[in-house]
Every structure is written in C-alpha cells, then in structure tokens.
Design a binder for these strands. Structure first.
Lengths: 145, 145
DNA sequence: ATTATATCGGATAAAATTATCCGACTTTTA
DNA sequence: TAAAAGTCGGATAATTTTATCCGATATAAT
C-alpha cells in the first residue's frame, strides 16, 4: 500500500544481502528469492535496479552473487533503496494527488496528514542497513511470509 | 502513493459533495468531475461505489445528482470513503508485505513503522466529513491541481 | 582452454488499475 | 405525455505494474 511490490521485494532482498555480507557470505539470486519468498525472475530485475542505483554490488560468474560493502552499510538508508527502485517516489506528494498542494494552498487533508508525512520522511532518511539487518541474525525479525 | 487514484478522486468528490450539500445544492457528475478535475467516466464509476457503500446518495433524473445527508456528515469518516472504494484497504498491513508480520514476529521495519501506522489509522478513523469540508467554503483548502 | 555458474538485458506475457463508451433506465419539468 | 436531464451497469480499451523466458556475457575453478 505505501510501497510497490517491487519496492517491498527490493527492501527485503537488500536487508538479506546486508546481513549475509556482514557474515562474509555472498548470496545469489536463487538464495535471495528463496529466503525472501519472492518470484525469482522479477527479483532479478529488481536486483539489477539496486546494482544500478549502487545500493548493492553484483559479482558475475561462478561463486558470484550480490553483496554490500560492509563499511558503507551504515550509510545506506531506506530512502536509497526505495529511490533506486521507484525513481519517482516522493514523500512530499499530496495524499489526495494534488500537484500544487502546499502549506499555503493545502488540500482538505493536508494538515491532518503532514505529521505522518514528516515521520515517514524521517524514517526513510534515518533508517540504515545496519539497523535493518541487526534483528535478522538472531531471529528477532523475519523476511518472509 | 498511499491511496489509489480511485481513492483520491473518491475522497475529493465526497468532500465536494459534502460541502455542496451543506449549502443545499446537489451537484451532478459533470459538476463534480469539473470541480475536482477528474476524468468524468471514471469518476462516475467511483461515485457508484460510494453510493453502494452508503457514503453518498444519488438522485436520478432531471435536477438529480449526488448528495449527503447533512445530519450524518459528522459520522462519515475518511475510513468509510476509503473502504467503499478499496474494499480490501487495510492499515494493519505490513509495510514490507509480510502476511504474518506482528509484534511477536516483526519484519525488520515493523518497529520503525508502527507509530506511523497508528497515526494513519487514527487519522482515517477520526477525520469526518465536516472536518474535511470546512475549509472549502471560504477557500482555505482546494480540491484540484 | 573448457566447463560450470552467475548476472545482464531485451522481449514478452499476465494481471491489476485507470479510463472510456454507450444503451438502458429513472425522474423532473414543461 | 413527451422531452430533457440525470444516474446505472455492462463491455471494452489503454496503461502500469507484476512477472516470466531466454540468449548473451562475464568469471571462477578445474
């Protein structure tokens, strides 16, 4: 509802890759789509977008797969993942779809929604991959079903 | 992004009808889609759903159109409009698309998102049509562009 | 070098959402 | 009672999103 399916898969995939990278492993497409329970071919497309967007790195050939530079992990934000997949994602957008909605010329829901929008923006800008992959290793959080 | 286009049109249409009803006017399809700048035929479909969902009433024939019972206006919530159009809209849904995500078995974003979800739920359940149509009459709020 | 294992990239298909068209029906007004 | 002004409902089309397939290409291991 807030994210597209592609984005959902993309975020879940990235979190899994992050956690595996921290473990010095390099999962491939099959591993990933199995782990996050997503359609393999569709996931491949999304991973390509994430590579283009420099959120993850790919390694071709035998023993290849996808990985994330461990040192950069704290700097990759949820926003970066979303932007890599839905280029025109925008949390500034009006909840009723008005192009010109603003503080000065608000839609009827604007003032009721702006706090939510601000929190959403904050979450996307501040949450990083370390935060997200943290709960995974000890099974506190899940990526599928 | 959070609502479908159909929902956006539906909410805007309902707010306009509400404000006109308070003024003892009864706009028809053409009036409405002109006022909220939406495709006429598509808007017709959405208005039908709102009638079925008892959010608005329709009056056929010459001088007909759409209206809302003034006395019920304070009881019609944003949630009711959304539910009439996206039957399976659900603010409880997991932000990463997991069916079983919960407090006990959270996805990695769950705890970061749950406050936002709660506010969203609150907004949808508490905001009524009087709140929404209020700013319209004196031009404080807008419904198009 | 050859082979096995991967990603990459383009074409295509399926499904959902958004949008249009039009004939049927209903109600008011003249 | 006829005409005009509306909504209703079904069929259909266009667009976007989701999903699949497969040949090309790159890399590691043997």
């Amino acid at each position: 509802m807030i994210f597209s399916k592609a984005c959902e898969y993309g975020i879940r995939a990235t979190i899994y890759i992050a956690q595996q990278s921290l473990n010095n492993k390099r999962p491939n497409l099959k591993d990933i789509s199995k782990e996050i329970d997503s359609p393999e071919a569709f996931t491949a497309k999304i991973l390509q977008q994430l590579v283009k967007g420099k959120v993850i790195q790919s390694v071709k050939g035998a023993n290849g797969g996808f990985e994330i530079n461990n040192k950069k992990m704290g700097k990759v934000k949820l926003k970066d993942i979303v932007k890599a997949i839905d280029e025109d994602f925008d949390y500034k957008i009006c909840v009723l779809g008005l192009k010109l909605c603003s503080e000065l010329r608000p839609c009827p829901v604007h003032h009721k929604y702006k706090h939510i929008k601000a929190e959403l923006k904050n979450m996307l800008q501040s949450t990083n991959l370390l935060d997200l992959s943290d709960g995974l290793k000890d099974g506190k959080t899940c990526l599928r079903f």
